[in-house]
Design a protein around this nucleic acid. Sequence first.
DNA 1: CTGATACTTAGCCAAAACGGAAACTATTGA
DNA 2: TCAATAGTTTCCGTTTTGGCTAAGTATCAG
Lengths: 111, 111
Amino acid sequence: MRAEPSHTDSMDRMFTALADSNRRAMIDHLSGGPASMSDLAHRLGIALPSALKHLAILEDGGLIRSEKVGRTRTYSMASDAFGGLEAWVADRKARWNRQFDRLEKFLEGDA
Amino acid sequence: MRAEPSHTDSMDRMFTALADSNRRAMIDHLSGGPASMSDLAHRLGIALPSALKHLAILEDGGLIRSEKVGRTRTYSMASDAFGGLEAWVADRKARWNRQFDRLEKFLEGDA
DNA sequence: CTGATACTTAGCCAAAACGGAAACTATTGA
DNA sequence: TCAATAGTTTCCGTTTTGGCTAAGTATCAG
Protein backbone atom coordinates (compact mmCIF):
# COMPACT_ATOMS: atom_id res chain seq x y z
CA MET A 1 0.00 0.00 0.00
CA ARG A 2 1.61 3.26 1.14
CA ALA A 3 -0.20 5.74 -1.07
CA GLU A 4 2.24 8.60 -0.60
CA PRO A 5 5.85 7.45 -0.22
CA SER A 6 8.13 10.00 1.38
CA HIS A 7 10.87 9.70 -1.18
CA THR A 8 8.84 10.56 -4.25
CA ASP A 9 10.15 13.40 -6.32
CA SER A 10 6.83 15.19 -6.28
CA MET A 11 6.62 14.97 -2.50
CA ASP A 12 10.14 16.27 -2.26
CA ARG A 13 9.40 19.22 -4.50
CA MET A 14 6.26 20.03 -2.54
CA PHE A 15 7.88 19.98 0.89
CA THR A 16 10.92 21.83 -0.37
CA ALA A 17 8.64 24.51 -1.76
CA LEU A 18 6.99 24.93 1.63
CA ALA A 19 10.24 25.09 3.55
CA ASP A 20 10.90 28.78 2.99
CA SER A 21 9.06 31.53 4.81
CA ASN A 22 8.98 33.86 1.82
CA ARG A 23 7.35 31.15 -0.25
CA ARG A 24 4.82 30.43 2.47
CA ALA A 25 4.10 34.15 2.62
CA MET A 26 3.42 34.02 -1.12
CA ILE A 27 0.95 31.23 -0.51
CA ASP A 28 -0.68 33.35 2.16
CA HIS A 29 -1.17 36.11 -0.37
CA LEU A 30 -2.36 33.82 -3.12
CA SER A 31 -4.83 32.01 -0.89
CA GLY A 32 -6.51 35.40 -0.66
CA GLY A 33 -6.72 35.66 -4.44
CA PRO A 34 -4.55 35.72 -7.60
CA ALA A 35 -1.71 38.20 -8.00
CA SER A 36 0.90 39.23 -10.53
CA MET A 37 4.58 38.50 -10.13
CA SER A 38 5.66 42.06 -9.53
CA ASP A 39 2.82 42.47 -7.06
CA LEU A 40 4.04 39.52 -5.01
CA ALA A 41 7.65 40.63 -5.23
CA HIS A 42 6.72 44.11 -4.04
CA ARG A 43 4.69 42.86 -1.07
CA LEU A 44 7.62 40.77 0.14
CA GLY A 45 10.15 43.48 -0.52
CA ILE A 46 12.36 41.30 -2.68
CA ALA A 47 13.71 41.80 -6.19
CA LEU A 48 11.87 40.40 -9.17
CA PRO A 49 14.41 37.68 -10.01
CA SER A 50 14.22 36.37 -6.47
CA ALA A 51 10.45 36.33 -6.59
CA LEU A 52 10.50 34.55 -9.92
CA LYS A 53 12.72 31.84 -8.51
CA HIS A 54 10.45 31.31 -5.50
CA LEU A 55 7.35 31.23 -7.64
CA ALA A 56 8.94 28.75 -9.99
CA ILE A 57 9.69 26.48 -7.04
CA LEU A 58 6.14 26.76 -5.74
CA GLU A 59 4.79 26.00 -9.18
CA ASP A 60 7.16 23.09 -9.56
CA GLY A 61 5.87 21.79 -6.24
CA GLY A 62 2.34 21.81 -7.61
CA LEU A 63 1.11 24.36 -5.10
CA ILE A 64 0.40 27.23 -7.47
CA ARG A 65 -0.11 27.75 -11.16
CA SER A 66 0.50 30.67 -13.48
CA GLU A 67 -0.73 32.05 -16.73
CA LYS A 68 0.82 34.77 -18.80
CA VAL A 69 -1.45 37.13 -20.63
CA GLY A 70 0.14 39.99 -22.49
CA ARG A 71 3.20 40.93 -20.54
CA THR A 72 2.01 40.12 -17.05
CA ARG A 73 2.07 36.69 -15.47
CA THR A 74 -0.67 35.99 -12.97
CA TYR A 75 -0.28 33.42 -10.20
CA SER A 76 -3.00 31.63 -8.28
CA MET A 77 -3.36 28.64 -6.01
CA ALA A 78 -3.39 25.28 -7.81
CA SER A 79 -6.77 23.59 -7.81
CA ASP A 80 -5.65 20.75 -5.55
CA ALA A 81 -2.76 22.56 -3.92
CA PHE A 82 -2.86 20.69 -0.64
CA GLY A 83 -4.18 17.33 -1.75
CA GLY A 84 -0.81 15.62 -1.72
CA LEU A 85 0.09 17.13 1.61
CA GLU A 86 -3.15 16.03 3.24
CA ALA A 87 -2.82 12.53 1.84
CA TRP A 88 0.73 12.27 3.17
CA VAL A 89 -0.32 13.33 6.64
CA ALA A 90 -3.37 11.08 6.68
CA ASP A 91 -1.18 8.16 5.70
CA ARG A 92 1.26 8.64 8.56
CA LYS A 93 -1.40 9.33 11.13
CA ALA A 94 -3.18 6.15 10.11
CA ARG A 95 -0.04 4.09 10.51
CA TRP A 96 0.71 5.67 13.85
CA ASN A 97 -2.79 5.04 15.13
CA ARG A 98 -2.66 1.42 14.08
CA GLN A 99 0.15 1.16 16.62
CA PHE A 100 -2.22 1.85 19.46
CA ASP A 101 -4.92 -0.37 18.02
CA ARG A 102 -2.50 -3.26 18.13
CA LEU A 103 -1.42 -2.40 21.65
CA GLU A 104 -5.01 -2.17 22.77
CA LYS A 105 -5.89 -5.49 21.23
CA PHE A 106 -2.88 -7.04 22.90
CA LEU A 107 -3.82 -5.67 26.32
CA GLU A 108 -7.41 -6.84 26.22
CA GLY A 109 -6.69 -10.05 24.32
CA ASP A 110 -4.43 -11.89 26.73
CA ALA A 111 -1.97 -10.47 29.28
CA MET B 1 -7.33 36.24 13.30
CA ARG B 2 -4.89 34.14 11.26
CA ALA B 3 -4.27 31.24 13.60
CA GLU B 4 -1.12 29.92 11.94
CA PRO B 5 1.01 32.63 10.38
CA SER B 6 3.48 31.39 7.82
CA HIS B 7 6.43 33.27 9.22
CA THR B 8 6.39 31.82 12.72
CA ASP B 9 9.59 30.24 13.86
CA SER B 10 7.84 27.05 14.87
CA MET B 11 6.20 26.73 11.46
CA ASP B 12 9.54 27.33 9.82
CA ARG B 13 11.23 24.66 11.88
CA MET B 14 8.45 22.21 11.14
CA PHE B 15 8.44 22.71 7.38
CA THR B 16 12.21 22.76 7.24
CA ALA B 17 12.26 19.45 9.09
CA LEU B 18 9.93 17.93 6.51
CA ALA B 19 11.87 19.22 3.52
CA ASP B 20 14.43 16.43 3.45
CA SER B 21 13.69 12.97 2.12
CA ASN B 22 15.88 11.22 4.69
CA ARG B 23 14.01 12.94 7.47
CA ARG B 24 10.67 12.02 5.95
CA ALA B 25 11.89 8.43 5.68
CA MET B 26 12.66 8.58 9.41
CA ILE B 27 9.11 9.69 10.04
CA ASP B 28 7.91 6.79 7.94
CA HIS B 29 9.81 4.43 10.17
CA LEU B 30 8.75 6.09 13.40
CA SER B 31 5.10 6.21 12.43
CA GLY B 32 5.37 2.44 12.45
CA GLY B 33 6.72 2.49 15.98
CA PRO B 34 9.63 3.80 18.11
CA ALA B 35 13.25 3.11 17.18
CA SER B 36 16.73 3.77 18.44
CA MET B 37 19.12 6.18 16.80
CA SER B 38 21.52 3.58 15.44
CA ASP B 39 18.57 1.59 14.17
CA LEU B 40 17.30 4.55 12.15
CA ALA B 41 20.78 5.41 10.91
CA HIS B 42 21.32 1.84 9.79
CA ARG B 43 18.02 1.61 7.91
CA LEU B 44 18.82 4.78 5.97
CA GLY B 45 22.41 3.78 5.32
CA ILE B 46 23.86 6.98 6.74
CA ALA B 47 26.48 7.56 9.42
CA LEU B 48 25.48 8.11 13.02
CA PRO B 49 26.42 11.82 13.18
CA SER B 50 24.29 12.51 10.11
CA ALA B 51 21.35 10.64 11.61
CA LEU B 52 21.75 12.51 14.87
CA LYS B 53 21.61 15.82 13.05
CA HIS B 54 18.46 14.86 11.16
CA LEU B 55 16.77 13.58 14.28
CA ALA B 56 17.65 16.76 16.15
CA ILE B 57 16.03 18.79 13.37
CA LEU B 58 12.90 16.66 13.46
CA GLU B 59 12.71 16.96 17.22
CA ASP B 60 13.27 20.71 17.01
CA GLY B 61 10.40 20.86 14.54
CA GLY B 62 8.13 19.22 17.08
CA LEU B 63 7.52 16.16 14.96
CA ILE B 64 9.25 13.57 17.09
CA ARG B 65 10.47 13.21 20.64
CA SER B 66 13.27 11.21 22.24
CA GLU B 67 14.19 9.70 25.56
CA LYS B 68 17.51 8.33 26.62
CA VAL B 69 17.59 5.34 28.89
CA GLY B 70 20.93 3.81 29.70
CA ARG B 71 23.07 4.35 26.64
CA THR B 72 20.43 4.12 23.96
CA ARG B 73 18.20 6.97 22.87
CA THR B 74 14.76 5.99 21.62
CA TYR B 75 12.81 8.14 19.21
CA SER B 76 9.07 8.17 18.62
CA MET B 77 6.45 10.35 16.98
CA ALA B 78 5.42 13.40 18.99
CA SER B 79 1.92 13.18 20.42
CA ASP B 80 0.54 15.95 18.20
CA ALA B 81 3.12 15.67 15.46
CA PHE B 82 0.91 16.91 12.65
CA GLY B 83 -1.39 19.27 14.50
CA GLY B 84 0.39 22.42 13.41
CA LEU B 85 0.63 21.22 9.84
CA GLU B 86 -3.06 20.39 9.63
CA ALA B 87 -4.03 23.73 11.16
CA TRP B 88 -1.86 25.58 8.67
CA VAL B 89 -3.42 23.78 5.72
CA ALA B 90 -6.96 24.22 7.04
CA ASP B 91 -6.33 27.93 7.44
CA ARG B 92 -5.23 28.43 3.86
CA LYS B 93 -7.90 26.24 2.38
CA ALA B 94 -10.51 28.21 4.30
CA ARG B 95 -9.22 31.50 2.97
CA TRP B 96 -9.07 30.17 -0.54
CA ASN B 97 -12.62 28.85 -0.39
CA ARG B 98 -13.93 32.16 0.89
CA GLN B 99 -12.76 33.51 -2.46
CA PHE B 100 -15.32 31.47 -4.28
CA ASP B 101 -18.04 32.22 -1.77
CA ARG B 102 -17.59 35.90 -2.46
CA LEU B 103 -17.60 35.31 -6.20
CA GLU B 104 -20.75 33.25 -5.95
CA LYS B 105 -22.51 35.87 -3.88
CA PHE B 106 -21.50 38.50 -6.40
CA LEU B 107 -22.82 36.51 -9.34
CA GLU B 108 -26.21 35.79 -7.82
CA GLY B 109 -26.54 39.15 -6.06
CA ASP B 110 -26.52 41.57 -8.97
CA ALA B 111 -24.68 41.23 -12.26
C1' DC C 1 9.00 53.99 -34.07
C1' DT C 2 10.14 54.90 -29.16
C1' DG C 3 9.98 54.72 -24.56
C1' DA C 4 8.21 52.59 -20.60
C1' DT C 5 6.71 48.35 -18.45
C1' DA C 6 6.85 43.40 -16.99
C1' DC C 7 9.03 39.69 -16.91
C1' DT C 8 13.40 36.55 -18.00
C1' DT C 9 18.18 35.01 -18.10
C1' DA C 10 22.86 34.94 -16.74
C1' DG C 11 26.17 35.28 -13.48
C1' DC C 12 27.91 36.15 -8.88
C1' DC C 13 28.24 35.85 -3.77
C1' DA C 14 27.61 34.54 1.13
C1' DA C 15 25.39 31.56 4.10
C1' DA C 16 23.34 27.32 5.17
C1' DA C 17 22.55 22.33 4.44
C1' DC C 18 24.09 17.50 4.04
C1' DG C 19 27.36 14.12 4.52
C1' DG C 20 31.36 12.03 6.48
C1' DA C 21 35.75 10.84 9.55
C1' DA C 22 37.92 11.15 13.86
C1' DA C 23 37.99 11.65 18.55
C1' DC C 24 35.45 11.80 23.09
C1' DT C 25 31.95 10.40 26.68
C1' DA C 26 28.91 7.31 28.88
C1' DT C 27 27.09 2.55 29.86
C1' DT C 28 27.25 -2.17 30.00
C1' DG C 29 29.15 -6.94 30.31
C1' DA C 30 32.96 -10.11 31.06
C1' DT D 1 39.09 -3.27 35.42
C1' DC D 2 38.92 -3.81 30.23
C1' DA D 3 36.61 -3.99 26.11
C1' DA D 4 32.77 -3.38 23.45
C1' DT D 5 28.64 -0.61 22.55
C1' DA D 6 25.71 3.63 21.76
C1' DG D 7 25.73 8.23 21.44
C1' DT D 8 27.88 12.81 21.06
C1' DT D 9 31.02 16.51 19.59
C1' DT D 10 34.25 18.63 16.40
C1' DC D 11 35.71 19.83 12.20
C1' DC D 12 35.87 19.69 7.28
C1' DG D 13 34.47 19.53 2.17
C1' DT D 14 30.94 19.87 -1.28
C1' DT D 15 26.58 21.25 -2.86
C1' DT D 16 22.47 23.82 -2.65
C1' DT D 17 20.01 28.06 -1.27
C1' DG D 18 18.46 32.72 -1.42
C1' DG D 19 19.52 37.14 -2.64
C1' DC D 20 21.30 40.57 -5.81
C1' DT D 21 22.72 43.36 -10.18
C1' DA D 22 23.06 43.73 -14.99
C1' DA D 23 21.61 42.65 -19.31
C1' DG D 24 18.22 40.60 -22.21
C1' DT D 25 13.20 39.87 -24.44
C1' DA D 26 8.44 40.86 -25.18
C1' DT D 27 4.35 43.88 -24.80
C1' DC D 28 1.86 48.19 -24.58
C1' DA D 29 1.02 53.29 -24.95
C1' DG D 30 1.90 57.19 -27.45
